[in-house]
Design a binder for these strands. Structure first.
Lengths: 256, 256
DNA sequence: GAAAGATATTTCATAATATGGAATAATAAT
DNA sequence: ATTATTATTCCATATTATGAAATATCTTTC
């Protein structure tokens, strides 16, 4: 074989593997069953090669062949593995496309937060492009009792974790709507659990509203939350509880 | 190379590919980052081989390396591909493990249904092992207006689809709880959308209760629904709306 | 803070393995 | 029925993946 002069040995993938991964990619891209030649042609592979690689994929359930049409499609294994990946991955890289989608659709800032020692920490955010918008301080802390993501994350704690959270904690008042008593917050969290989403009805800042839903890990534990927030004049309470809350939940269900 | 006498040529996978897929599998199995040697040892591969295969996986984002620890983990691509696979796959093969989990945890029959021409069709089911249990007729039709999965699926229809559904339809009464008027059903569906789950409070059969949640496809359309049902003496209304509804929603969020 | 130990990465000669052309089989189209 | 198209299998060949060893990098341990 004639080597190119500047033979960068670096970055030489294993051919058969690289081709196999490309097969998986194109099957995902198409989204519906493909014939052997469709795959071969698209990837510039010989039919015999593609066929052999596909057979290997099928053996390991990474692909399957539709019995009636003979076409090839992704296998169940890709799903179960990808699903596991979700929880090993940095939650940000996974959540980002969905934050973006929420922002695009509702033109309001979408953000991602986790709980740390009872406080909310914003770990990612896609800001609305409007002039007036909500904007959290990335990496910054915020009290949980007055905001939507916080409530959702608190609602996901176990009873003993909650007790530790409440123990000796005083809830500062930011607006006339802020929940400041232990009992009221307990009840609020109960409601959040029931509804599946949390609200911030101008409880942190006058004129700012927010809905949030939890992201659960494979053990059913709420590990992060996604919120959409914006000014009250654009977001009525009914819009918040109806349209936005539903969209957010669906978004999470669809993707996570 | 010495061939075994009975050289079944059939079923000979592409070695490098087969090994690569095993790498993906074991990373998924462990669920957290692995060192090179952990992978090698577990799969009986030489470090150099594993390393080369991993590099190929990384190039294509099927794996990634944690910058701080140097450990390897699944890449974002596995997630996005697996996610796509979900909708190309038969919904049953995907939903089955979760039906089973629901049954195991709550000891009640879990089932999977789709909508066809306004009727519910049960396409899969994991029956409770108790003596008294709910059991749907697999493949069988049931009217949508009186049961939980039906309501959830109806709630996922577009307005025009809904109008076609309602048009000239009469709702038969099965129990004293059955919703029989168009207006009442409309309101009920509205409620289902809000809550994210549907109920059957002895509306099909006296003494049988059920909760259901929708499974959404990548377009956010409800394509199937999962329900848990059982006798009313084991399932109180508050248990149904609280525990069961929440568990089901989480289950779906976690997995789909 | 040095030295040893472990682990990761790169290199390279070798042969085992993946490859693609061709032959055959199975489907689809005419 | 005949042809055309597509899928699958076979097999000789050399390209490509392999593993031993060398090097580099990161951890311990003393």
């Amino acid at each position: 074989m004639v080597e190119t002069a500047i033979s960068h040995t670096r970055e030489r993938p294993v051919q058969s593997v690289e081709r196999t991964l490309r097969i998986l990619e194109i099957m995902a891209e198409w989204g519906y069953p493909m014939t052997l030649s469709e795959i071969s042609n698209n990837l510039d592979l010989k039919n015999s090669t593609t066929h052999r690689l596909l057979k290997t994929l099928i053996m390991k359930s990474f692909a399957q062949q539709d019995p009636s049409s003979g076409k090839y499609l992704l296998g169940i294994k890709t799903f179960s593995i990808g699903n596991t990946a979700l929880y090993a991955l940095d939650i940000r890289s996974v959540a980002r496309p969905y934050l973006k989608q929420l922002e695009t659709r509702y033109k309001e800032t979408a953000n991602l937060a986790i709980l740390d020692q009872g406080d909310v920490i914003y770990i990612d955010q896609v800001e609305s492009e409007r002039m007036v918008k909500m904007s959290a301080n990335l990496g910054g802390r915020a009290p949980s009792h007055s905001n939507a993501v916080g409530k959702v994350l608190l609602a996901g704690l176990t009873e003993s974790e909650l007790e530790r959270y409440f123990k000796g904690r005083k809830f500062e008042r930011y607006t006339s709507n802020t929940i400041t008593s232990h009992e009221a917050l307990r009840m609020e969290l109960e409601k959040v659990s029931q509804l599946g989403y949390g609200l911030d009805a101008e409880e942190t800042e006058e004129g700012i509203r927010c809905v949030a839903s939890a992201i659960y890990n494979h053990l059913g534990k709420a590990t992060a939350a996604i919120g959409i927030s914006g000014p009250g004049n654009r977001i009525s309470m009914s819009y918040l509880k109806g349209e936005l809350a539903t969209a957010e939940k669906k978004q999470l269900m669809t993707f996570l």
